[in-house]
């Protein structure tokens, strides 16, 4: 009989002011246990101040086969970047 604990993805905020960042996964029977396990597994050396856990099966990921159509079109939109715009020399604070 299979009684495997489900897989959870773990995200840690390493200090206040930073985003939670994916650090890995672990197994736990429920969400509370997943938080505690994440604390013991991924923050043994004070790596975190906040933890998110998400059941791995709940993650929807973009399809790598669609990578070109999803992400390439942004590449030629140079006007979204400040360096696209010419300014005269000597202008500061901009």
């Amino acid at each position: 009989m299979k009684n495997n604990w489900p897989l959870w993805e773990v995200f840690i905020r390493s200090r206040q002011g930073l985003n939670h960042k994916h650090v890995g996964s672990l197994h736990a029977a429920d969400a509370d246990m997943a938080i505690e396990n994440a604390r013991d597994v991924y923050t043994r050396r004070s790596e975190g101040v906040s933890i998110w856990v998400v059941p791995s099966e709940q993650i929807t990921a973009s399809n790598p086969d669609q990578k070109d159509e999803l992400f390439d079109p942004a590449e030629d939109k140079v006007y979204r970047h400040p360096t696209f715009y010419d300014l005269p020399d000597g202008i500061t604070h901009m």
Binding site: L26, A28, N37, D40, V41
Partner: peptide
């Protein structure tokens, strides 16, 4: 009984 709990008890 499982790695995660092994680590927890050692803590």
């Amino acid at each position: 009984p499982i790695l995660e709990q092994d680590i927890a008890l050692s803590n």
